[in-house]
Structure formats: structure tokens, C-alpha cells
């Protein structure tokens, strides 16, 4: 039986084999990515009325999303939040990842697994836990009040709290991305840089940073895209003024039942994320990334 399969396999040419091997993946992608995406796209050109989807091709949803001040405010808030969050995450993740790689020694693996611990619980649970920490009678503020300091208003149901929450959620992703990048980085290149006249900072800037740029950018994207779409975090931490685009979009489906408007918001979000990823891919020059370079053989 298996012999027969092998024989058939050997008779196939390169292209046929490629098709056969990639078919399951392609099918999976189509089923779980392309089909829902097309469904959303289609629905975004329809209309809802009292929880009924009405097939009435129009672009009003897009006009609303793009011209109504409220949705623009949500989108702008989301973009600004996502930018702040991802830049902060990158800035925090670098020293953490660097420290683990350089000084983690044999505990390196353990430390990295430690990074993954928060992943074991769901996002909702983690955000609620964070609410317990940042909230008015959370650990942080109770602690502050104990030692006679005013609670930090800025962290109670504000956009800052949302940002803190998102940073807490996505820092492990960015750290892991940069960690993996540094893991493949040949630190001895720094010896070369130093011998040829670079100080510590210069060596970092000329060698370490550009050669881990791809990992950094991936980490950035891993934070930026979900932050842009975040719904749970602003809901629990953002307070009455902290509604973000993803939260508003989510409520189109769950609360208000205005699905087609929600779908249009989803498409817009998809495009903004897409543009971001495209821009990012443009600023990454793979040749300059050191991929498959000699630097990594060691």
C-alpha cells in the first residue's frame, strides 16, 4: 500500500508535488481566512435594520465610518494608542531580551518560558487581573494610600491605563521576537566592531541594532496590529472616555447589531493594519538584515 503511494509520488513532477503538499495549508487559509474575509467584505456593502441584514448594495457604511466624527475619533485614538504601546514595548523588550540572552546563562530557557507564562491564561482574565492591580482599590493604589500617597488618577479608567494594559499584554510577544532574533545573533560580531574602532554604543548602533531590526520590526507589528484592534483592554481599563476603534467595532456585532457598519469598520481596520504592515515591509531591507549572512554561522 505505502509502496504504491511512494511510486505514485515519485511519478509526480515538481509542480504537482508542490500543489499536493501545500493543498492542506491553502485549504485551511481559504476556509478560515479568505472566506470570512470575503463574507465581511460583502456584508459591509449591505445594510442592517433592526437586527436584520438587508441585501441592498451601498457604500453608506464606508461613508459613515470615514466621515462621521465619532468613528474617526475612535480610529485616531486607536492609532495613537497602538503607536505609543508598540514603541514602548520595543523600548522595554530590548533591554529585557538582551539581559536574558547575555546574562541568562543556563536559566535562559527558563526565563524565556517565564515570558510565556502569561499566555497560559486568556486575555480577558489577564486584563481583569490588571484591573485589580491598577483600579481604585487595586494593589497599586491601596499600596500608595497605605504609605500616604494619593492614588494615581491617571491609571484609573483612562487611556493611559489602556496603554499600560496593552503594554502588559504584548510585551511578552515583543520580548520573544527580539529574544529569538538575538538568539540567532552572533555576538562575536561586536568583537570585530570593537577591534575595528567602535565603542560599546557605536557597536550596538552599527551592528546589533541593524542585525536585529527584522526581529524588532516583527515585534513592533505583533504589538501594533492587535493594539490597533484591541477591544477587551479599553473596555475594562479605558473608562468612559477610552473607547477605541476595536471596542466600538466589536459592539456593532454584539450589542447594537449593526453588523454591516461593523463589517465596514472591520474592512477599514484591515486596511489600516495592511498599510502599516506594508510600510513596515518596505522599511525592512532583507539584504541589510543579515539574513543567511555569514554572521550567523557559529
Amino acid at each position: 500500500m505505502s509502496g504504491w503511494i511512494v511510486q505514485r509520488w515519485l511519478k509526480l513532477d515538481q509542480n504537482q508535488r508542490f500543489l499536493l503538499l501545500t493543498a492542506p495549508v491553502t485549504l485551511f487559509l481559504i476556509l478560515f481566512f479568505v472566506v470570512p474575509l470575503i463574507a465581511i467584505l460583502v456584508v459591509s456593502f449591505w445594510r442592517t435594520e433592526s437586527y436584520q441584514l438587508i441585501v441592498d448594495w451601498n457604500i453608506d457604511n464606508y461613508i459613515d465610518v470615514l466621515t462621521e466624527p465619532s468613528y474617526r475619533v475612535f480610529l485616531l485614538r486607536s492609532i495613537v494608542t497602538a503607536l505609543i504601546v508598540s514603541v514602548t514595548c520595543v523600548a522595554l523588550a530590548w533591554p529585557i531580551a538582551y539581559f536574558v540572552i547575555r546574562y541568562g546563562g543556563r536559566y535562559k530557557l527558563l526565563l524565556v518560558l517565564g515570558l510565556a507564562v502569561p499566555f497560559l491564561t486568556g486575555i480577558v482574565l489577564r486584563v481583569i487581573a490588571l484591573q485589580g492591580v491598577l483600579g481604585p482599590i487595586g494593589l497599586l493604589n491601596l499600596g500608595l494610600m497605605k504609605i500616604g500617597i494619593e492614588p494615581i488618577q491617571a491609571l484609573m479608567y483612562t487611556k493611559t491605563a489602556t496603554a499600560v494594559g496593552l503594554i502588559y499584554l504584548y510585551l511578552p510577544f515583543v520580548t520573544t521576537a527580539i529574544y529569538l532574533s538575538l538568539l540567532n545573533f552572533n555576538f562575536r560580531l561586536l568583537d570585530a566592531a570593537k577591534v575595528f574602532g567602535a565603542g560599546n554604543f557605536r557597536a550596538f548602533w552599527e551592528i546589533t541594532w541593524p542585525l536585529n531590526w527584522v526581529g524588532t520590526v516583527i515585534g513592533f507589528a505583533l504589538t501594533f496590529v492587535p493594539s490597533l484592534a484591541s477591544a477587551v483592554t479599553p473596555r475594562f481599563l479605558g473608562g468612559a472616555n477610552g473607547t477605541l476603534f476595536g471596542l466600538a467595532m466589536g459592539s456593532q456585532f454584539s450589542a447594537t447589531g449593526t453588523w454591516s457598519l461593523g463589517a465596514a469598520m472591520g474592512v477599514v481596520l484591515f486596511f489600516v493594519s495592511g498599510i502599516t504592515l506594508f510600510t513596515i515591509s518596505r522599511i525592512v531591507n532583507l539584504k541589510r538584515s543579515g539574513f543567511t549572512g555569514v554572521g550567523s554561522r557559529d
Binding site: 560580531l189 570585530a192 577591534v195 542585525l211 538584515s289 554572521g295
Partner: peptide, 20 residues
């Protein structure tokens, strides 16, 4: 003195060319 102030240069066994 740190390496970069010694005016020396080095050729490494695995070359250590800057890949980027």
C-alpha cells in the same frame, strides 16, 4: 585601553564580516 583605542586590527577565523 579598550580595543578601539589600541590601533590594532584582527582577522578572525570565522571572518566575522558584517553581514548587513
Amino acid at each position: 585601553l579598550p580595543p578601539y583605542q589600541r590601533g590594532i586590527a584582527m582577522v578572525f577565523q570565522d571572518f566575522l564580516l558584517f553581514p548587513h
